[in-house]
């Protein structure tokens, strides 16, 4: 599988990152098998979080067995020192390892959170302390939020080395500032910050729960995913063509094999095809009147 430099971290990540939340839905034996399958495809970057149910625990055994081969990202939703310090130790414990390669401030949504995180006694203090103590190697950020907020974070956190954010044809086709992840990509490019793409396989929101109860959803993802080999290949190729360093696999284990195949066989995607996907998505919810043309 193709590898790309993860910003200036020194890490060469495979273009697919394994979203280890998928392990949460499996028994331990199945989780072990899935990790073996992922490693067989050459994937060397895993991502996990304490909020993903038992994913950390289930990743533990195989992670320890192959520790040298895996670059591990983990995260925290804590915003203050105490909570973040505890979560780092808790994750190290649950994973059964000494060092997390990339520790990410998870799910940044509001400017006020950024204030808290960066203030004295904020989560960053704990993360930096852990870094000095050798418990983590690199500092990152994840956000589904406003691209401008991510850029503010880059401005305000000097030692930020990676960011993780949504990117797919639907997002890419929207023009407003609130969708301008292009600007984030450019900024990261110019500063050597690594980029990880999420929601690459999102088709749309789930139907409202009165139409489809949560318990009746066929996939564990918090959005409705694309789920045919062709659509998955297309979405992977699109995301990988957006100058992201790596694309995170979707959270449902049933989709992982298809995504691994897509990433292993990927041959890139030319611009005319990328535009076709964006235009196709754009027309599904276009505010512009009925059009005969593109």
């Amino acid at each position: 599988m193709e590898t790309r430099a993860l910003g200036d971290t020194g890490q060469e990540s495979t273009v697919l990152t394994f979203g280890s939340i998928a392990l949460n839905w499996l028994e331990q034996e199945g989780a072990n098998q899935l990790v073996e399958l992922v490693l067989d495809h050459g994937v060397n970057h895993f991502d996990v979080a304490p909020t993903y149910g038992d994913a950390e625990l289930k990743l533990g055994p195989k992670l320890r067995q192959y520790r040298e081969e895996v670059f591990l990202g983990c995260k925290t939703q804590e915003r203050e020192y105490e909570g973040a310090a505890q979560k780092i130790d808790r994750s190290l414990n649950r994973l059964g390892i000494d060092t997390i390669d990339l520790y990410q401030i998870h799910g940044l949504e509001y400017e006020a959170e950024l204030d808290t995180i960066t203030a004295d006694g904020g989560a960053l203090d704990a993360i930096r302390e852990a870094k000095a103590a050798g418990k983590i190697d690199h500092i990152g950020l994840t956000s589904h939020g406003n691209p401008q907020l991510i850029i503010d974070a880059i401005d305000r956190i000097d030692d930020l080395e990676t960011v993780m954010f949504p990117l797919n044809p639907v997002v890419a086709g929207k023009d407003g500032d609130e969708y301008d992840y292009e600007a984030v990509l450019e900024r990261c490019e110019s500063e050597g910050i690594g980029t990880l793409g999420i929601k690459a396989f999102a088709k749309g929101s789930w139907p409202p729960t009165d139409e489809l109860a949560e318990a009746d959803r066929p996939y564990a993802n918090w959005y409705e995913p694309v789920d045919t080999p062709e659509a998955i290949r297309e979405r992977f190729d699109f995301a990988a063509a957006q100058s992201l360093d790596t694309v995170v696999s979707p959270g449902d284990p049933k989709l992982v094999k298809m995504v691994l195949d897509a990433a292993s066989r990927s041959e890139g995607m030319d611009e005319a095809r990328q535009r076709a996907l964006i235009e196709e998505a754009r027309h599904d919810d276009s505010p512009v009147p009925e059009q005969l043309h593109h």
């Binding site: 030319d270 005319a272 095809r273 535009r275 076709a276 996907l277 235009e279 196709e280 027309h283 599904d284 276009s286 009925e290 059009q291 005969l292 043309h293 593109h294």
Partner: peptide
């Protein structure tokens, strides 16, 4: 510019 051209339901309808 486009390859393929996505003729969406909205285009077909129009």
């Amino acid at each position: 510019l486009l390859d393929p051209v996505p003729w969406t339901e909205a285009h077909i309808e129009a």
